[in-house]
Design a protein around this nucleic acid. Sequence first.
DNA 1: TAGAATTCTGGAAACGATTGCAGAAAGCGA
DNA 2: TCGCTTTCTGCAATCGTTTCCAGAATTCTA
Lengths: 341, 341
Amino acid sequence: MSGIEDVARLAGVSKATVSRALSGRGYVAPPTRLRVSEAAASLGYVVSSSASSLVTGRTSNVGVIIPVINQWFFSSIIEGVERALVERGYDLMLYNLTKTHEERSRVFEYYLVRKRVDAVIAVTLEITPEEAETLLALGKPIAGIGGPLEGIPTLSIDDVAASRLATEHLLLLGHRDIVHVGGDVDEQMDFHVHSKRLKGYMEALTAAGIAYDETSYIAARFDIPGGYSVAKQLLGDPRRRPTAIFAASDEVAIGVILAARELGISVPDDLSVIGIDGHPLAEMFGLTTVVQRPDLQGEQAVDWVIRQLEQPGWTPPVHHTTVPANLLIRSSTAPPRRPTP
Amino acid sequence: MSGIEDVARLAGVSKATVSRALSGRGYVAPPTRLRVSEAAASLGYVVSSSASSLVTGRTSNVGVIIPVINQWFFSSIIEGVERALVERGYDLMLYNLTKTHEERSRVFEYYLVRKRVDAVIAVTLEITPEEAETLLALGKPIAGIGGPLEGIPTLSIDDVAASRLATEHLLLLGHRDIVHVGGDVDEQMDFHVHSKRLKGYMEALTAAGIAYDETSYIAARFDIPGGYSVAKQLLGDPRRRPTAIFAASDEVAIGVILAARELGISVPDDLSVIGIDGHPLAEMFGLTTVVQRPDLQGEQAVDWVIRQLEQPGWTPPVHHTTVPANLLIRSSTAPPRRPTP
DNA sequence: TAGAATTCTGGAAACGATTGCAGAAAGCGA
DNA sequence: TCGCTTTCTGCAATCGTTTCCAGAATTCTA
């Protein structure tokens, strides 16, 4: 449990010099630096982060606020963020802010957060301009995944475009009877992702001169069982069966495929299915999808906040940045067996 | 950016009193306490955790070291740990220690960790007795999920027993030709989980007087595609087809079920399948399984370390604790269609 | 080789809380 | 009412660094 004082004594220098030698800030003669490092190593010395941050005002912690952990999209973000942070010598403080959390009380414990982290990465969290203002005023950089968000840099794929891309792929194959199985527009947690994906779908249909009505969109729980149960019902009725389904996420899409299989409906012969995400399971189902990389989104967000921290004056791209989402064609989509008579 | 001094001035008391009033330690007259709280609130004051931990030696952070995030078992643990920590006013610092990380160098950055966290929860990490010794000597409580681990309290299900339980369920149904699809014994990351599950399986067979050979166990990647591809091959050959498969995890089991379906093998009529875990997807596949609750394991680990921190003298159960794992019978298991002639 | 510029080092003042100690105020039993 | 205990409060030391400042040593420039 040795302090800087012990190192100083052993190396025969002052505390000030030890500090400079170890942190690499300021002048220190190479031989001295070496002596100090050796002394520190031999004593197993490591700086007290509390003492250090008391004077510098920096904690080397970045707070990540995330609504769920147990889902591919979110845990991938965490992995990406963690990787990027350790690489730069920062630690990750994880805050799992559940949607339903009464009155977002923890966003106010946020105000507690402010003395414990240097920056905040808000995943899929709708921060009000006032809250953003507060954080910024405190000198804490923020970045958001999701968005756009007034006053803070955010990034995400372009949900409308991704959705349109998926729909257009089906249209291009010749489908005209496409159903969208998406998240429930009324209970979306994040940035209206569900409505955006619905919107992209509708735009694509409209552009192709295809009419849609309320039966063209079905709300499902946003996971495999969700897609499964909706599809089971939809596909069970042969008269209503579309030639293609655009699912708003790969998990939903996989649920759809499972339902189709169970009903003896061949994918893609009788039914084309496309999703969005690039989920690890998509491959084994041969699922055509629009791929996004949440881990890279996490890395990008880290880059923004750390840059702001370390390069005074640098500011991230204002407002919202769109990250790529690419069509990956596998075997779940094909031209409709035959045009509707 | 107001400090304790400002609050003191506004409330007309000394810093010492403010500290006592806000932290609830020591005597302070109720009216005074009220004045202080109001002053603090009106100034938006919040204690500096660095200053505070500099003097108290406590950070209110707990480090969680975990090998993967993007998997049900692990992310469930994180959720449980996080929940339990915030409830007690601690923050969670996440360290994603990849298996292959060269020389566990980060376990030595551990030595870095030691000034930043009050306690450590090691998930599925084989800590050597020396390392444990070091941590303990530093006064940092540790708890492990997985184990047993020399010198530190750990908890997990009893893998051998869980495995035996699953196998016995199949035996009880009358199966005698049971194949175990498990993780690769040679490349297991954690506490020989794969061998333990294999062992439980063999024990059950032996107890039932059933012989097994090297064809009774097949190694698979520990996820859905892993189980799928192994099963596809195994079940593809009708002569080798067992009447039941015991998969070492639900994901593997689901892979097996998918393969069976694709081959037109009916579960459970032609093939019974059982897994271990209680994965959220198990339900929709009607998968019989042995349920464990990683989130509760996380909570338990938190309880241990926090108790050690807050109740001087209290020590957690020495060595290893076994948490329950219960058989949950669904529809993927049934008696074999007919006894082998 | 003198003077200026640069590199190196130590002393001492922060940073913002917590806490031991001691004294003042209040409560209490007889 | 008097002592004794209990409650309340402030002073000042302390935690372990970083960093400003000034002075010493060294290198560079002309």
